[in-house]
Design a protein around this nucleic acid. Sequence first.
DNA 1: CGATCTACCTGATGGC
DNA 2: TGCCATCAGGTAGATC
Length: 278
Amino acid sequence: MPELPEVETVRRGLAEHVVGRRITHVEVGRERVVRRTSREALIDGLTNTVVVDAQRRGKYLVAPLDSGDSLMIHLRMSGQVLLAPAGAVRPKHTHVVLSLDDGAEAWFVDPRTFGEVVVYAPDRVAVEVPALAELGVDPIADDFPRTELRAIVRSTSRALKPLLLDQHVIAGIGNIYADEILHAARLRPDRPANTLDAKATWRLHGSIVATLTAAIAAGGSTLGDAQYVDLMGAGGTYQDQHRVYGRAGERCSTCGRGWIRRTTSAGRSTHFCPVCQR
DNA sequence: CGATCTACCTGATGGC
DNA sequence: TGCCATCAGGTAGATC
């Protein structure tokens, strides 16, 4: 569920509440969330280290430690990072608990256990976390000149939606924001990338940056199942600004003429207005 | 190279 | 009330 805006909101929570803290104790419940290495590797790598920064690359959270290693957390579909006082009742599916030196605990909670937590040496990132090393440009964290997007769209005949979802190309966009971005840019999800002229490309670039920025400002999107919440357990409000995602059958709020359609492509739900997206 | 499918899990939801 | 099928924000790997 969490895409760039949600992960960025979690990152800001970590920057505010966890950076500067020493990890005094580590517990690992389900081994599956540390499957990339091991329970022992996570405990040994984190215990008695200080978190010195909170960064984000695409949908990956990366927290450098004073040991020189980095902590990586990926929330995948249902992961959450929550902050709580020591001793608080832990929710079901709390798989990792970090005790901090100020009396708080950081929990990694994940019902579906697609998410993962790992400590790795940064110079070994290509081996330890290859997908992290192979991420494309981050449209918010990196400089993302529109000429770079121009080069990307000219290089392929792939449809725009799968292109936006490809983390090797642009890092951080997921299923919700891909649909919202393409609607804001008035471009069909199945439009071949290399058919965009310069003007349409600039529009797409503007929509990527504006949509993600607005979503971050709103604290991300929290859907009905409340799977995504920030460190303090609060949901985001950007779902109120969704114009196509989850709005199949509704009149398009932008052009006022089309009806939002929901289709499936490559197994992902896709929402768009057949009238104003071309 | 690119499109499609499956698998990984649990929980929520809707139909009967 | 309960049972079963279906679906979900992500990614990796297999297949064609």
